[in-house]
Design a protein around this nucleic acid. Structure first.
Length: 242
DNA sequence: AAGATTTTCAACCGCTATCAG
DNA sequence: CCTGATAGCGGTTGAAAATCT
């Protein structure tokens, strides 16, 4: 039985996932896990994408506005984190959940022991503007810009072809999965600048820290979005909150 | 400076919902 | 309907980072 890799993701794994998702879209995670060459479960890939690699994610502290919004929404919906997250663009359910558990529990504790004076309850002043997870294309970022452009073009072209064909089940008598698999097998190694699936990298347990903005230098134009329509529809139906 | 303690948050687990065949 | 595959959700864990003593 195949033993799947677990634990922290490496930068190389992230790049593989980003490239694969950019080609195939953020659906069918088992298939993505399979064709990406990542020795990970589809579930793990999805989680990594949703909580960390998605281009629309904000990072950094919650703003006071966001903080009060979390409080409002939690008062209405309780621990329905994914629902709350829909009203906070760029924040994931996991992030909000973590935030609530740490900050709010602490505040509740403080209040319980009578330490929460009006001053102490005021929002933190160390808030920093959320940094968007976008590509840093400045010359000193260590990325070869020519290589980047080449990859973007190649990736975008393939992406458009694949997106179009993803809506069909069979092309030229081949099941869609086989066609996609073939395309990915030929294209992904080139995009990542590797010749063969890198076993060493798959076995490398060395984690890396913070968001890797360089990844987006290798990603194609974004064809995904945050499901804005659905968010807006939800927002419309509960506009009374504000 | 070093060890202990606390906080943070990425990742996993188990479960349910949904959908296609 | 039934079944299996897949997506998504909420709760939990544990390692790393930050803070305290």
């Amino acid at each position: 039985m195949l033993l799947r890799r677990r634990g922290p993701w490496t930068e190389e794994e992230d790049m593989q996932l980003v490239c694969t998702v950019s080609m195939l879209g953020d659906r069918r995670w088992d298939f993505i896990a399979q064709v990406s060459g990542l020795n990970r479960s589809g579930k793990s890939c999805r989680l990594r994408w949703v909580n960390y690699l998605h281009p629309g994610l904000k990072r950094g502290r919650m703003s006071p506005q966001e903080e009060s919004l979390v409080i409002k929404l939690h008062a209405r919906w309780g621990n329905r984190w994914s629902r709350i997250a829909r009203f906070m663009p760029g924040r994931t359910d996991n992030e909000i959940k973590n935030y609530w558990r740490t900050h709010m529990r602490k505040k509740a504790q403080d209040r319980d022991i009578g330490l929460l004076s009006p001053t102490a309850a005021s929002p933190t002043t160390t808030y920093q503007s959320p940094c968007l997870l976008l590509a840093d294309t400045s010359p000193d970022n260590g990325i070869d810009s020519a290589h980047t452009t080449h990859n973007n073009n190649a990736c975008s072209c393939l992406t458009r072809t694949l997106i179009r064909s993803t809506h069909q089940t069979v092309i030229d008598g081949l099941p869609m999965d086989q066609i996609l698999l073939k395309e990915v097998n030929t294209t992904l190694p080139a995009l990542l600048g590797i010749q063969e699936p890198n076993d060493e990298a798959c076995n490398n347990n060395t984690p890396y820290s913070p968001p890797t903005t360089e990844i987006w230098c290798h990603a194609p134009e974004m064809f995904w979005n945050m499901g804005d329509q659905e968010i807006n529809q939800d927002a419309d139906s509960t506009i009374w909150l504000w």
